[in-house]
Each structure stands twice: as C-alpha cells, then as structure tokens.
Design a protein around this nucleic acid. Structure first.
Lengths: 246, 246
DNA sequence: AATTAAGTTTCATGCAATGAAACATTTTAA
DNA sequence: TTAAAATGTTTCATTGCATGAAACTTAATT
C-alpha cells in the first residue's frame, strides 16, 4: 500500500479509512506491531499513525502496551462477537457440529458468504493430531476454492456444469484446492424460507477421505443440515437429490 | 451523545472517532440499525453518517443490506477473532473449562482485565435450562461486581480488607452482585512468571450454590488453574493458600 | 563517541470534512 | 385521495482540522 487513498475513492472519508487500514494491518497473523511496522504496512506517515492511534485507543479499538507495541483492543472483540451473535444460527448449529466431529473425527466448519468472500463463522476441531488446522474462526477467503465455496456459489445460483452437479447432488467435494494435502466435503444449509444460510463442511487430510469415508460423511452432513433446517422451521424437501424417488 | 467530540479530546482525529462511534452504536444488542437510529445514538448529522459509512463499508466494517439497514461487517469478526487468538491461552484453557462444566454442570467463563473493564474472553455453557445466560463471549463489564472482577482487582494488587481475604484464600465469591439471582465463584489464573492472566469462574443460580457445592467448586477451580499454570510452565506454589502447611 | 533507527512533537498550509438546504422517496395521518 | 410527516440522499460553499516535513528526543548499534 502507499497510504494514498485519494485517487481510488469516490465519496467517503479519507481519515477514517486510514484509521481502519491501521486496524486491518493486524489482520494478517501478527498480533502486535510497532509504529514502524504499521508505517510499512499501511504506507502512512508516522505522525499520521500516531494521531490516528490516539483516537483508536480512546475508543478501545487498539491498545498500546507499555513497551510501545500496538495490539488490537477489546472493542473489536466485543463487536466481532456481536457480529457472530447476529447469526443466531451458530448457537443452534454448534451441538450438531460437535456431533459430526465426534462421529467422523474430522474438523467441521460453518461458513457464510459475504459478497465475494467466504467467512468462517464457526469451527469445531477434531481431536486428531493431523487435522485441518488451516482455517480458523474469523478467517476470510476468496470465493474460489474449497468445497464450501463451491457450495455457496452453486446455491447462490451461479451458472456452470459443475455447479449444476453440486445442485443435483446437494454437496461438493474438494481435494487440495485450498491447501495441497487437504480434502473437504460440504453441504448447503437452508433456512426457513429455503434461503441459503451457509455451508457445513468436514475437512481433513486427503488420505482419510476415501470414497467410502466420504459417502458416510455425505450422509452425515445431509442428515445434519436436514435436521437443522427442520428445527429452524424450514421444509426439508429441498435436500432431496434429483435421483431421489421417495 | 451529541456528536460533538471537539471539546473533550486532545489530539486524535475527529472524523475517525466519529466513524468508530458508528461501529460502537451496534455494540448494545442491536444487530441492525437504520440511518435514523445511528443518527440518534451517535448524535451525528445524517450526511456525515452516510459519508462515513461509505468508508466503513468499503473496508468491510459495516454492511448495508438491500432494505437499507446497516449491520456490522465481517472485517470486525475477523479482527475480533484475531484479538481472541492473540490470547493463546484460550486454546489451552478451553478443554479444562469443558471438563469443569461437565463436572459441576454450571457455566464457566474466562475473563481478562482490560483497563477498568472485564472482558469475557471465553465461555462454556452448561447443559442446564436454568443457567447463567447473562454473560456472553465478548461482553465487557465495569470492574465493580462479580466474583471475577473481585479476583482481578485483588490480584492486580488493590488495597482493602476484602481483597486481602481474596488473596489469602485465592478465590472470590459473589451472590447477586451482577445479576440478582446469580452466584459465582472465581479463581485467578497465573502465567509463567507468576503474572495474572485472568480469572476462571463458575456461575449459576444461587440455589445451586450451597456451601458444600461451592467448596467442591473451589477445589475444582484451584485444581484446574494449577494444572493450567503447570502446563504453561509456571510455578504452582502461587496457589498455596496462607493456611496451607504442606 | 558516533551512527543509525525508532519514536515523538510542532506548526503552517490547504485539502477535505462538514452540515444546512434542497430534493426524492416512503410511510402515516386525515 | 390528498396532505403531512418521516426517512433517506445529494449538493456545495465554508472553514475546521488532518496533514507531513522538519526538528527533536530517546534508544539501540557500531
């Protein structure tokens, strides 16, 4: 970045975006940054950063430690939790995910679509040493790879033969598209009105995702989302595949 | 609020603080707000809000729904998760809290001090219908009431007879100080260098917190925090009460 | 002691944040 | 149905305040 946001934007407030860019500088795995780090990442002048940080700290969005390092503040955690809570689904879905993890002993994630991104809203870890540790709660990906992304795109109505197939079979799989050795299988979760809420996924190392294992997982996932939709007051017919007859 | 931040502040950037105040408007249980709501809560001019929101939305901090309502954005969730992850302790402490909840069948919370606030970093719910549903992850309280607050204050070195007693017995209790019918018992958790990391608490309705029940909980909590401190590489002597002799 | 780097404060300059006003649109009342 | 009120949006002249270079103070390295 070069810190000069003037050219690209129409409308908006530069000072605010600069402040937000300071916050976003912490989003990439570094939990503490020095003034110089922030200056490098954002491209902002140090004076500017210091001035913006006075405001960020006063509102609790960042915290400056005694040793001078900057950290994210509790206000972000508070609002982040509020964001998650606004999806009331998480409370309902958690026990179901716990059960899935117990049954298949692989990590389960629940993701939602946000524009052209996927956001990992919830994750339940398996107890295995070798497991999908690549994604965490709060992570955000492009809507390109991975079983969940495919599901979210398919049931947002995107065109394409592969998406047709996902709609037909009501699930998607992926092998090494997001992380080289990882595999995943995902199903859509629908709400009361048949609207797409998100995608429920199981993921782990490819060698544990045999055809037979994945067939069982598919059953487990479909059973799980059907039960969830039912308890949300929705119609479960939507989970009938095109080859179902009953 | 009156939206006029000019008088109170020295240094800082007004436009940024106004933007942050918009975000904070969502912090009080309302997950969606209209323009007018935001104007009322923050005291800002609607034009100003609209302009600030362009920037907030462009950076993913808020999202405007098609019906015009504003909601928090995924960027906040991402950063909030990053905040939580910066306390690596949560990963270690979660299984221990799960075990506590299994044993005593009451909700367990882990809180940390942030200035003059308590922040609920993690919570494990009990399966009881009647339980402490008053606090959630991400909540922030004044450092006044509740067992955890007392513990955090006592082991931050505050003066007072009651704090002396908490330091002696290495735990605090509370009955109805935060919520009328609730009771709680809390212990401090210390890190490697004997530094206070936070407070571990069990809480529920008063009628289930008899003397004998709480004696068992105290043992359970102390055992839990001692084990945690040990696995963090710290010395557990710090959990010896003044009346211990061995 | 000399040099480099990191952090902080100041202040003249002019850019960009501001809010009143006018307008568009939707909802409520009469 | 019309009128009135509430909500949301855009514009633009005014000036408030965000800006960053420069000077300065530590702190770390050589």
């Amino acid at each position: 970045m070069d810190g000069d946001l003037r050219l690209e934007q129409k409308g908006g407030v530069i000072a605010l975006e600069r402040g937000l860019s300071i916050l976003s500088a912490f989003g990439n795995e570094r939990s503490a940054l020095r003034l110089t780090d922030i200056a490098e990442i954002t491209g902002l002048n140090k004076s500017t950063i210091l001035r913006l940080c006075v405001s960020l700290e006063r509102q609790g969005f960042i915290k400056r430690r005694e040793d001078g390092w900057f950290q994210l503040g509790a206000a972000l955690f508070h609002l982040g939790s509020a964001y998650q809570r606004s999806f009331q689904i998480v409370d309902v879905i958690d026990p179901v995910m716990q059960a899935l993890v117990n049954e298949f002993n692989e990590c389960s994630t629940f993701t939602v679509r946000d524009g052209n991104s996927v956001v990992c809203l919830h994750k339940v870890e398996s107890s295995q040493g070798i497991r999908d540790a690549g994604s965490s709660i709060g992570d955000r990906y492009d809507l390109n790879n991975g079983a969940s992304s495919q599901v979210l795109r398919a049931f947002s109505g995107e065109d394409g033969e592969n998406f047709d197939q996902i709609r037909d079979t009501i699930h998607a799989t992926s092998f090494g598209t997001l992380y080289p050795d990882a595999a995943a299988i995902a199903c859509p979760l629908f709400g009361m009105g048949g609207d797409l809420l998100g995608a429920l996924q199981l993921s782990g190392p490819q060698y544990r995702f045999s055809e037979t294992a994945m067939a069982a997982m598919k059953q487990g996932l479909l059973h799980a989302v059907a039960g969830l939709t039912r308890s949300l007051g929705g119609n479960t017919d939507i989970y009938r595949t095109n080859t179902d007859n009953n």
